[in-house]
Design a protein around this nucleic acid. Sequence first.
RNA 1: GCGGAUGUGGUGAAAUUGGUAGACACGCUAGACUUAGGAUCUAGUGCCGAGAGGUGUGCGGGUUCGAGUCCCUCCAUCCGCACCA
Length: 913
Amino acid sequence: MEYNYNAIEQKWRNRWAERKTYQVEQDANKQKFYVLDMFPYPSGAGLHVGHPLGYIASDVYARYKRLQGFNVLHPMGYDSFGLPAEQYAIQTGQHPELTTKENIARYRDQLDKIGFSYDWSREVRTSSPEYYKWTQWIFIELFNSWYDKTTDKAMPISELVATFEKNGNANINAVSDQEEVFSSEEWNNYSEEKKEAVLQNYRLTYLADSWVNWCPALGTVLANDEVVNGVSERGGHPVEQKLMRQWSMRIKAYAERLLTGLEGLEWTDSIKDIQRNWIGKSKGASVQFQLKDSANAIEVFTTRPDTIFGVSFLVLAPEHPLVDSITTNENKEAVAAYKQNAALKSERDRQSDVKNVTGQITGAKAIHPFTGAEVDIWIADYVLASYGTGAVMAVPCGDQRDWDFATHFAIPIKNIFEDKDISKAAYTEKDAVIANSDFLSGLEAKVAIEKAIEAIEQKGIGKGKTNYRLRDAVFSRQRYWGEPFPIYYKNGLPQTIAVEHLPIVLPEVEKYLPTEDGQPPLGNATVWAWDTVANQVVENSKIDHQTVFPLELNTMPGWAGSSWYFLRYTDPNNTQAFASKEAVDYWKNVDLYMGGSEHATGHLLYARFWTKFLFDCGYIPFDEPFKKMINQGMILGRSSFVYRNEQGKYVSKNKLTGNETPIHVDISLVDNDKLDTEGFKKWRADFANAEFILEDDGSYVCGFEIEKMSKSKYNVQTPDELVEKFGADTLRCYEMFLGPVEQAKPWDTKGINGVSNFLRKLWRLFQIDENGLAHLSTDAPNKESLKSLHKTIKKVSEDLERFSFNTVVSNFMICVNELTEQKCNNKAILEQLVVLVSPYAPHIAEELWEKMGNGTTSVTQAQFPTFNEEFLVESTIEYPVSFNGKMRFKAALSATLSPKEVEEIVINSPEAA
RNA sequence: GCGGAUGUGGUGAAAUUGGUAGACACGCUAGACUUAGGAUCUAGUGCCGAGAGGUGUGCGGGUUCGAGUCCCUCCAUCCGCACCA
């Protein structure tokens, strides 16, 4: 009987659903294993062949772990808040919820066809109120917490308030923006507004006026990771700096723990490095420079306190708060002009202008703390207001930027390094011996740094300090399709809404655009006020600022819901908590996380932050969300092009003259680079009367390019057609066979026949007759077949353990080829082979499993075969190696021996003795 | 500029610890069979050479009995960061 994959796959899809084969429950007797895919945003384009690559790999692994007896949690859901649905709503008026639902249905349909072993009873959607209720709850928890540096964890804000009432804030060691020190009396006499303003400096999520990345085209602010090269990540629109009152997350509080936590993670070095880089820790010192004509001092941050005797001027960021007050009269105009110029420059201009040295002297002078010399104070936009203290001590001999600046403005450069030439460039290595530096002279830089910090601290003008480049993350978005904040405003002060009244459900609006006076889209809602008596959302008209108050108009960013979703899967329908204690204690964190590396500085950092926070609060027993991560590479599309010339004719590739414009053409109209010209004419109205300049053989040859798959490039390969044509099992094996999952590669179906053949050969081994019966031998298996099988078991388990998904398929092929050649139809052998193959090709495995007489059980309940070395040993070859004039024997390292075994053979060889 | 990764046939790629480089598959060549198929089977296929043989993992060195693998220099490609003091 032929291998009819369509019928078989249909049959098992239904059975799995009926039997709830992949539903898992907590089971204290079984060890858990949590395999998770990054959940997708359900876009209108549907799933393309790139999506399933990671999903298939993780599904293979989940199935493998299940066969090993683990209780495997393998869920799926949707990151369903997002921009495209909202933009579609703006254009068409269709509610984003509707669009999202339709897209999810399509995704689900596509996913089901590929045979994933997801437990769909645990599906989560970030846009469902039952889910975002708990996103809102976490927000409130953050609002009600502050970071205590002494205990190095988040603590309840109520304890902080209690301390303020008793002792003021003098002994509080917090991560905060609070600079003012107050006593308990002062605190107790503060107004409510003042108290809240102070608390905002401590809360882990807070409202503050801050410089944010404002994207006028998108009409919203963006987090740093959403801005790439000065333009928005989505859409590539320009981004400018704007001072706005926004919610922020005090992620900086976790900078050090986010850094050290990386060490224990099995992530790739490159992702860890990207995060390290993003956090950007640097050690150094802060030093105060007293102003000559004022009581004020300028605090600078430096990583090279050892070079302090090389300071020849100070530079402030143009936005530095002291600039205006210190500038001398004769420089006022020039400084103001420089400041204005700097403010007008966009991020992008500033970046492209790096090589251009600019600056302006303020006329003010500071006193060098050790030499007492007067040093000029400049402003320049190479100093960033948002890093360190917004001021630097310039050491031109040791810093290239300072050197460039000094050279440009003809400022004398003092050399404080022994035997180093600084006439052409600064000497920036940390290996020089310091000279001309009083008590630091003669010391090596490393020693000098410590000595300098000591001296600075002794003088009381600064201290050793660590700085992080990581900024607090802006948490407000001026959008409709996101989580509403559980916040209302009383006298302008933010108030939280108690968890029992959550969720605060997204209100209906007539327009999804911002309001005319620039308010976020929720400003269009007419039922968007909070009644503190009835504890519900009521009409805006009822706002009286006594019992009914306005609600927050911003919504949360896309990363809010995705920062904790892995926790929700452990207990997705809980209405009393984000997840029960028992559930998170049992399932714990994700053992294997599969997803793209593009989330390195976004989702992956924020999820780690929230996990650490929830850990601090005692809600979860771990402080890292994802233990092991694999980053699947992007599958690229192969776009096809037609070329239109100036006369409007379409020119075939080999007839091009160079003056034609390439136009993307739908890849479904192209076969083997040849265009279906009739189909092309029908494709779009403007091509209906297309005229062609063809090849000599009368065909039209298209050009191609490897690009990211996207709807607009008409190069999207959906998995559906391949499932239809070859079957899901073939698609699964083929995607794994393509190469290492981590690697980006263009999609290409050339090799799919080979994989398809493999499954057919596997089918044929079972000699299934016209009545669908397998003809297998129950005799004792022969040695040769046992060897083939066990060689494969060994290889496959080793390869799966090291996540080498592609080589596994090759080993299956070798095994099937060998068994075919051996004419093996032994039941005991083939049964184990079926189990072995089932993670890759679950449908055919189930069918064969059934045909072997295991009708009542599923192959998913089988045991993963164990490797028995006794079937392999005789396959080793020994060969002589000439070594130091003696002859020795060493075993050839065929795949069948472990290093230990090889060692033994070397020792036991008579010649070696 | 800094940090990370990668570099192997016509193609996708294997080679886990330094031990027969190119497994497995695509493609290609020749043949067999046929109900002519995107079917199956057989043989061949790194490069040079008729052959014996030589040569070969981005370039150039080094360590080693032995290097795709370890070390150094350089080159190329990709990714991340980028006036971060």
